[in-house]
């Protein structure tokens, strides 16, 4: 059975439709969906299409990569990170350093390259093009309480050079060993 425990405020701040089609005319918006134990009998939808914060350094990076100085291509923003820090509220001025100060770095929840990264060109009736970026984490060493933030970056934590691009909070979720957390980011650009 699927249950929805997203808070009312988060629901009010999203626009949902049958196919998660975002009708707002926004540039480069990210939407986050998190499902605990996806596909299992105890599956739980933690949040659905929560709108992101697009950071300033992320915005600059996207412009450089796409329009300005693409000679130094650094790879896609398809690395997904998690945090359970209760004090972290994503802000446009956040960056790699502020994110890594609160980021999970153990128990199977270390920032990782996406399992799937797929571009959908959309259909001619809407031209809503999306990139869907999915990673399923498995809590593997010890239980972790209060996971409540996810971010998209363009490299691993170990690289020390990544850019924090998108970040969003959701209703906190506790993970026991062997629990999974499927994190889906959908980025629209049209």
């Amino acid at each position: 059975m699927i249950t929805e425990n997203t808070t009312r405020d988060e629901q009010l701040n999203t626009k949902l439709s049958k196919n998660s089609t975002i009708k707002e005319s926004q540039f480069g918006s990210g939407y986050l969906t998190v499902i605990k134990n996806a596909g299992k009998s105890n599956e739980e939808v933690i949040c659905k299409d929560v709108h992101n914060v697009l950071t300033a350094e992320g915005t600059a990076w996207v412009h450089d990569q796409c329009y300005i100085d693409n000679s130094g291509q650094t790879g896609g923003a398809r690395y997904i990170g998690l945090s359970n820090d209760g004090s972290f509220t994503p802000d446009r001025d956040d960056d790699r350093a502020s994110w890594e100060a609160v980021e999970e770095n153990s128990n199977g929840l270390v920032r990782a390259n996406a399992d799937s990264a797929v571009f959908n060109a959309g259909v001619s009736s809407t031209y809503i093009a999306t990139s869907t970026i999915v990673k399923t984490f498995t809590c593997d060493t010890g239980a972790v309480a209060g996971i409540r933030v996810s971010s998209l970056l363009n490299n691993t934590r170990a690289s020390g050079t990544s850019i924090l691009v998108h970040s969003a909070t959701f209703t906190s979720v506790d993970l026991e060993v062997d629990d999974t957390l499927q994190v889906t980011w959908v980025i629209t650009l049209y």
């Binding site: 399992d115 799937s116 990264a117 797929v118 571009f119 959908n120 060109a121 259909v123 990139s131 869907t132």
Partner: peptide
């Protein structure tokens, strides 16, 4: 709809 990318 047309898709491309990598997946499992």
């Amino acid at each position: 709809a047309k898709f491309h990318g990598d997946t499992l």
